[in-house]
Structures are given as structure tokens and as C-alpha cells.
Design a binder for these strands. Structure first.
Lengths: 223, 223
DNA sequence: ATTACTAATCATCGAGTAG
DNA sequence: TCTACTCGATGATTAGTAA
């Protein structure tokens, strides 16, 4: 769990190390020089490096007089997450608007969402841990063909996994937005017929958007 | 220096507003909801909005119960800068390595660099305000043809401007790196023959790298 | 030269609450 | 409800300095 506990200043320091080339080769830099790059004191730079080490974001070797710093995979991943968010802001994306009718599921959604193996992956890709449970939208006619279009699209891969008790299949995830809230559309793999679209989000959508069975809502899906 | 200057938490808040769509349309959100998006308290969210207003990064209308927030151009620019840095980390770039001989200029470099109209633009694109003055590298033979290649390339546009006293021409800027320090290669437009390459940086390069006239140095230029 | 500890300072945050 | 103030706690940053 090295990703937890990272503060803004840690990502800032990490970014500067990456800008100095720390993703590819070891950066040879003293805490004094690093401080200059950060616009802070030597002490703050030294502390930042210690924090990044503790977070598992960098590796360090202090050989002779200076230290050789390299970003770990976890460190690169943390920056990649920031990068992805900014890309979402600046790079225009294709969206599909799909309308569906709110319908009650069988409570299965909540069961799957409660699995740590899924929740962790959703958190990584959506940037937040969704509440357990899904909003189920029933699709008809034209909307169904849009769903089939999603099935054909690439999406974010959610890996299957095996618990003590059973095996959970993989799924495909698309970011989406409805009623001003962002969330994700989950499409389990190996489902044959499908006219229900399951949506997960940071908040309980039914409550947040005051939805009840039979309501029609439009979801903007980012392909 | 307390009023000016965006802090990390400001950019963080700004990013979340942008993720909610604030770059395109007004975001209708309460400080309570915004706090939830930020993972902070309502008070912190409210304070962040006030700071962003003071920084000129957002515009706000408080009509009835909720506020309508839009990012200003300055706010978008601040995020774009972050985005550009992360792109530099993740998007592989082409580089040209050019070798030149340290030579004394006529002191012109320092005169131009002292112009606020240039300094401000360099700061925006390099991420720091370069010291006044340039390191001049004299190029010969093969290296000259690499310089011509740079002339042909796109580069970062530095706009010309007019002072009270005179007009300053535009230029082209490339990021570069030498001796582990990053800086920029400045190519003034409307220069015909050229065998000198001017380099600006955050620090006095001569001093930082202990260079003297006649020394050969290699510059890695990011095209 | 370094890195990094300790103590003091200072900025930031959240609780309570006013308007 | 809402925004945003004060204030005390928290935590980050710095100066001084040890190793």
C-alpha cells in the first residue's frame, strides 16, 4: 500500500525528480541542488526524499558524496495518475450518451463491489473508491446498440481474480458522468445477453440524484 | 510575497474544478460538495475557492443557493503548465545533441534577458525565470547543420513586443539540458547568418559548470 | 562537502459558529 | 440550508547544527 498517504508536496517533489530524468536513469543530485529545483530549503528537500523513500516512490543509493535516485514503478504510477487526470481535462475525448431506465438489481452489484479485488482496481482507475452497489439502467432499442458499441470498444481492463471461496471474472470499465457526477460503467466479460448497464460511483447515485425506479437518466460515457 | 503565488493545494483544487468541467461551462457546486471532491472539509474548500478567486484562476457567481464557477484563462494556463511538465515526463521526445565552444558575447544577451517582456515568457515556458545573460556557444561544421535543423523545427513561440523606447523581435525557444541543468536555446527570429547558439538557464551556467572561453560543451536540445 | 536531526516558526486545516 | 469567519490543533518548513 505504498500509494496511500501521498501528499501534494510528495507528488510535487516526485515530479521534479522525474523531470530530472529519474524515470529512466538514476539522478545524481544533492539535497541542496534538489532544494533549488523545488524552491525550498535543503532540509525540506532532504525530508521530501525521506518521505518518498518511505512511500516507496523512489530508490536511493548514497555511494560517494551524492545520492543516486531512481523512481520506482509505484512512483511512476503515482505521476501517471496525475498525468491521466490532466489529459482528461485537456485532451478532448469521444463520448457516447446513453439513456436508460433506473431499475432495481438483484443486489448482486453490491456483492461484487464489496470484493476487495474489484474495489482496489476501480479505485486505481477512477481515482476514488466507489460505494458498494451499482445503479442499474435498463436499456431499450437504440440505446442497446450503443451498449453493443461499448462492448466492442477497448475500455479499461479490470482483471479477474480468485478468492478463497471462488473465482471472479474480469470486466471492462469506462469512465462516465451523469448528473454532474463522475463514475464508471462496468461491463463484466463473458456475459452474453445484456440489456442492463451497471454504474458505479463515488456516491450513492440513487440518493445523490434522487432517482427512483422507472426514472430515465442519460449517462455520458467516455470511450 | 504572500498574496501572489499559487501553492500546490491551489493547483489541486483547480484541477478538480477542471475535472468537473469548469474549463468549458460553469460548475454548479456547493462548498460542501466541492469539499467532498477534494477530500477535505467544507471550510478548506471554501477557503480554496477564495484563494483561487484572489489568484484570478476562477470566476464565480453566487446566484441563489449554489455558486457557478468557471476557470479563467489564467487558471487554465496554470493547469496547462502542469500538464506540459507531465507530458515531458511521459511522452518520449526527440533530442539533438549539439556541441559548441564557449565564447564571450557582446553582453547583448544580458540586455535582452533583462527585458521583462522576454523574461516573463521564458518563465512561463521553462518553469523558472532565467538569470539575465546567455551562454554563447560557437558552432562549427556538422554542428552548424544541426542548428539549421533547429531553425526548421517548430519550437516554442516567444512573441515580440514593444517597449516605450523600442521594438523587440520574436524568437523561438527550445528546452535543453547541459551538464545536468535544464535551460533553453533561444533563436531570435529574423537573424540571417548564425553560428552562435544562445542558452539561457536558471543559473549562471559559466559559474555553475565552471566554464571558460574555448571550452567545448554538449547541449541536449529537446525538439 | 554531504545528510538529516531537533527545535522553533509558520502555514494550513477543521470545528464551531455567525451572517 | 448556504458561505466564510475565528481560533486552536496539526503538520510542514526552516534555521541551526551534529555526524
Amino acid at each position: 500500500m505504498s500509494g496511500e498517504g501521498a501528499k501534494l508536496q510528495h507528488l510535487h517533489a516526485l515530479k521534479h525528480l522525474a523531470l530530472l530524468g529519474g524515470t529512466k536513469r538514476p539522478v545524481r543530485i544533492s539535497s541542496r541542488e534538489f532544494a533549488e529545483a523545488l524552491g525550498a530549503s535543503q532540509q525540506a528537500a532532504s525530508a521530501a526524499l525521506l518521505d518518498l523513500l518511505k512511500l516507496g516512490f523512489i530508490k536511493r543509493e548514497i555511494t560517494s558524496r551524492k545520492q543516486h535516485i531512481t523512481l520506482t514503478d509505484a512512483g511512476v504510477a503515482a505521476l501517471a495518475h496525475e498525468h491521466a487526470e490532466l489529459r482528461r481535462i485537456f485532451d478532448p475525448q469521444k463520448t457516447v450518451e446513453i439513456e436508460g431506465m433506473v431499475s432495481s438489481g438483484l443486489g448482486e452489484g453490491a456483492y461484487y463491489m464489496a470484493q476487495e479485488g474489484y474495489a482496489r482496481q476501480f479505485e486505481a482507475h477512477l481515482g476514488h473508491r466507489p460505494v458498494p452497489g451499482t445503479l442499474n439502467l435498463k436499456l431499450e432499442g437504440d440505446e442497446l446498440s450503443k451498449l453493443q458499441m461499448l462492448e466492442a470498444a477497448k475500455g479499461i481492463d479490470i482483471a479477474g481474480f480468485t478468492d478463497k471461496s471462488r473465482t471472479f471474472g474480469g470486466a471492462k470499465l469506462f469512465r462516465c458522468e451523469l448528473g454532474g457526477l463522475d463514475g464508471g460503467v462496468v461491463l463484466p466479460l463473458r456475459t452474453h445477453h445484456r440489456d442492463i448497464m451497471e454504474i458505479i460511483a463515488r456516491r450513492q447515485l440513487r440518493r445523490a440524484l434522487k432517482l427512483k425506479d422507472g426514472d430515465k437518466v442519460a449517462v455520458k460515457v467516455f470511450v
